[in-house]
């Protein structure tokens, strides 16, 4: 996992990630393309443990190679699908969400490849919502038709807006009754902390998750990434 996350004075970014085993299949990363263009990725490899970690490191190679090219989010996913399909065994796949943040135009462009829906807080509307654009996990279609299943979202961001990313280790964590933490609880934590910093939002989410599960031991890899746009 990266030690330093790229940003500039327009946004803060905070990540938190734990693996169930010594190594895991969750992934996040950033790349600064130029002064004002940043790419951000969060991903989750199917399965757990060593084989997931191996594919995760392949995904990191794909990201670090392609992100430098400053591709659109759709072009990034198409190329990533082609590359990673040649690396994965038949029943493996990787879900990712890919973001391009342009701090000059104050725009975000993003696409989803089968990953859990992003939660976005709009300061102006004082509302959080899920981005549920269509998508397909990487490695699922290996025959050139992948591009038909990817839908791109573009929006202008304003100061105070927040992007909350996570992996299914959080949304599918269960309590003693077998109930899942779920998307709505993640959204509720964000709703209650929209004025807080990225660090506080991340800490509150993990505290709330542990309070729900009754333990800090969750038998899965789990990751969250919080981005907040500044004044």
């Amino acid at each position: 996992m990266p030690v330093i996350l790229n940003n500039n004075d327009q946004f803060d970014i905070k990540a938190f990630s734990v693996s169930a085993d010594e190594v895991g299949g969750d992934y996040y990363d950033t790349h600064q393309v130029n002064d004002h263009l940043f790419s951000v990725i969060i991903g989750d490899v199917s399965g757990k443990g060593t084989s997931a970690a191996f594919h995760m490191s392949q995904m990191k190679g794909v990201f670090q190679s392609l992100a430098q090219l400053g591709l659109s989010s759709k072009a990034f996913l198409i190329n990533a699908n082609n590359a990673i399909s040649n690396c994965l065994e038949k029943a493996s796949f990787i879900t990712v969400s890919y973001f391009l943040i342009n701090t000059e135009k104050k725009e975000i462009e993003f696409a989803r490849a089968g990953h859990c829906p992003t939660i976005y807080y709009s300061k102006k509307e004082d509302e959080t919502r899920f981005f549920t654009n269509k998508g397909l996990g990487l490695g699922i279609l290996r025959n050139g038709d992948f591009h038909k299943y990817i839908q791109v979202n573009k929006l202008a961001y304003l100061p105070g807006d927040i992007i909350l990313l996570y992996t299914d280790g959080i949304s599918e964590a269960r309590n003693n009754d077998g109930e899942e933490y779920g998307y709505d609880r993640i959204k509720e934590v964000l709703d209650a902390n929209t004025n807080a910093s990225t660090t506080i939002i991340q800490e509150r989410l993990i505290e709330d998750l542990y309070a729900f599960t009754g333990s800090s031991f969750i038998n899965d890899d789990y990751t969250t990434l919080v981005i907040k746009f500044n004044n």
């Binding site: 199917s46 399965g47 029943a91 796949f93 699922i140 290996r142 299914d168």
Partner: peptide
Amino acid sequence: SSAGLGVFMSYIQ
């Protein structure tokens, strides 16, 4: 789990 989804996915072609 994702491994189970991988089974269905692997026979699409």
